[in-house]
Design a protein around this nucleic acid. Structure first.
Lengths: 130, 130
DNA sequence: CTAAAACCTGACACTGACGTCAGAGGCAAG
DNA sequence: CTTGCCTCTGACGTCAGTGTCAGGTTTTAG
C-alpha cells in the first residue's frame, strides 16, 4: 500500500510516517519513481510506534529499542535490551505517578462535589449564596 | 520565602515559577521593590502543578481548572468543574492506554529474555551463534 | 561600605513532533 | 491528452515549557 492508505489505516498523518522513516523507525520499499510502498506488517509497526510515543518515549529512544523489538540478535540486543528494561521501569513509575495524580484529582473533584451539594442545599433552604 | 527557595524546595527552576505566574497558575506577594514572596501554601500549589504537568495537562487547561481547585464558588466552578471531570476522564483513559503499552513492552521483553536464554544455552552446548 | 548572591524584566534560543507550503513529478480515469 | 489526486523533497512555521543571556536593582554577608 502507499503512504496515504497506511496513514489513514494507522490513524496518523502522512507527515508523521515520513518523519518516522526519517528517524529510522520505519522503512519502506521504494518504487522506481521513489514512491513509498508498505507491507501489511508496517501497519502493526506504526500502531506500536503510536503506543510508544503515547507512552512518552522519544523517537531517539524508540530507535534504540526497535532492534530489540524486531530483530533479536545478540549483538544488537545487549544494549537495546537493557535500554528497554530501563524504559519499562520508567514507564511503570510514570504510570504510578499518574495514578497518584488521578487520585489527587478525584479528591479535588469530590471536595467540589460536596461543596456544591451543600451550596444547592443552602439555596433550597433560602440562604442566598454569593 | 523568596523565589529561589521555593524553586529549590519544590524542585523546579526559578524560570518555571515565573512562567507559572505568567500563565496565571501561581500568585505571589510583591515587595516594594518588586521581589516575589511566597507563603508556605505556595509550595503545595507548585507541587500540585508539577503533578498536573506530569499528567500531561497544558498550562491553559490547568488555568481553567484552578479556580475550581482553590476557590470553589458557584460562578467560577460551573465550567471549571465540568472541565475537571472531563480531564479526569481523559487522564483515566490515558493511564489505561499506558498500562496497555506496559503489558506490550513486557511481552516484548519476555520474548527477548526467552530468546536470549535459548541462545546462551546453544552457546553452552557448543552451537556457534551467528 | 562593599562585594557577592539573589532577584527583576525582556527577549531570544532550543527541542520534538509534527503542520504546512512550494514546486515538481507520478498515475489512473475519462 | 488532460484532469485531478497522490506523492516526492526541502524548508520554514508552530507550540509549550524551559534555558539562557543581558543589563540593571535589591538583599545579604562580612
Amino acid at each position: 500500500m502507499r503512504i496515504g492508505e497506511l496513514a489513514k489505516r494507522a490513524g496518523v498523518s502522512v507527515r508523521s510516517l515520513r518523519y518516522y522513516e526519517e528517524q529510522g523507525l520505519l522503512t519502506s520499499e521504494r518504487s522506481a519513481s521513489g514512491q513509498r510502498y508498505y507491507s501489511e506488517e508496517a501497519l502493526d509497526r506504526v500502531l506500536f510506534l503510536k503506543r510508544l510515543y503515547a507512552a512518552g518515549l522519544t523517537s531517539r529512544v524508540i530507535a534504540e529499542l526497535l532492534p530489540c523489538t524486531y530483530a533479536p540478535s545478540i549483538q544488537t540486543s545487549d544494549d537495546a535490551f537493557d535500554r528497554m528494561v530501563e524504559e519499562r521501569e520508567r514507564l511503570k513509575s510514570h504510570i504510578d505517578d499518574l495514578a497518584g495524580t488521578l487520585r489527587n484529582l478525584d479528591a479535588v473533584i469530590d471536595t467540589n462535589r460536596r461543596w456544591r451539594a451543600s451550596q444547592s442545599q443552602d439555596a433550597a433552604s433560602g440562604t442566598t449564596a454569593s
